[in-house]
Simulated assay, not measured.
Amino acid sequence: METIFNRRSVRKYTDKVISDEQLKQIIKAGMAAPSAKNSQEWVFIVIRDKEIYKAFLGVHPNAFSLNTATAAILVCADLSKEREPGQGWWIQDCAAAMENMLLEATAMGLGSLWMGVHPKEDRIACIKEVCGLPEGIEPLGLMSVGEPTKDYDKIDRYMEDRVFFNTYGTKWEK
């Protein structure tokens, strides 16, 4: 739980370069995520090219963490690996991988930010073009990663009024 409560969306990083070994560890965490029917459609692209960052900044108004990031990881799906084509399970599979990656970065003492790509058509088109994604490779999200410029407080977002028992509206007496 400690890692979960420590994970925060970090939008500004120091200039310390994240190593390839650190990035590999984060990606390994992504690949440890569950996936529907164990299809593991995910594909990861490590990005360090500032020109790609600039292009994405042009279509994503909240991607400014890329201004200071020394690395980013694009999470995509290879739709040819879907076990139930057209059902969209890849979205959940890649989202689970992304969350694992965010948590691993936190556990490593790094900061990270999930920037949504899917389902925004302009973002999808931009990423497909600048990263050279072939047909059938669909981007879900881009994660910036780096050493945070400040410490963040733990956060607990538990909301009692959002938990029910058996049916909606029935208070859960714990």
Rank of each mutant, 00 (worst) to 15 (best):
Y168I: 14
H60E: 11
S144N: 01
K120T: 07
P119R: 12
C126G: 05
I45A: 01
R157E: 08
A63T: 11
G109T: 09
G86R: 05
S35F: 07
A105E: 09
I155S: 11
P148K: 00
I73C: 01
E135N: 11
R83H: 13
F164K: 05
L74G: 04
E41N: 07
L74K: 03
A33E: 05
A107P: 11
K37F: 12
T167G: 09
D93P: 04
R83T: 15
E129R: 15
V75M: 13
A69H: 01
M98A: 15
E84C: 06
A72E: 02
G146P: 00
A72L: 08
V163S: 02
D93S: 13
L66K: 02
E82W: 08
P119V: 10
L66R: 02
A96V: 12
K50F: 05
N166I: 15
T149S: 00
G58E: 07
N38P: 01
C126Q: 07
R83D: 08
I127V: 15
I155Y: 10
S65H: 08
K154I: 11
W90I: 15
Q92E: 14
P119Y: 03
S39E: 15
G132R: 15
A72W: 01
D78T: 07
T68P: 00
S80M: 13
T70Q: 01
G30F: 04
K150D: 06
H118R: 13
Y158F: 14
L133E: 06
S39I: 12
Q40V: 15
P139K: 07
A32Q: 15
L140A: 10
W42D: 01
G109Y: 08
V145Q: 02
Y158T: 07
A33K: 07
T167V: 14
K54Y: 01
E147F: 04
L66V: 10
E84M: 09
H60W: 13
T149I: 09
A63R: 03
P61K: 13
K50I: 10
A36K: 03
S39F: 09
L103S: 09
R162L: 10
A95L: 02
I155E: 11
Y168W: 15
A97P: 04
K54T: 10
L140G: 06
Q87P: 07
T106Y: 08
Q40T: 15
C131D: 07
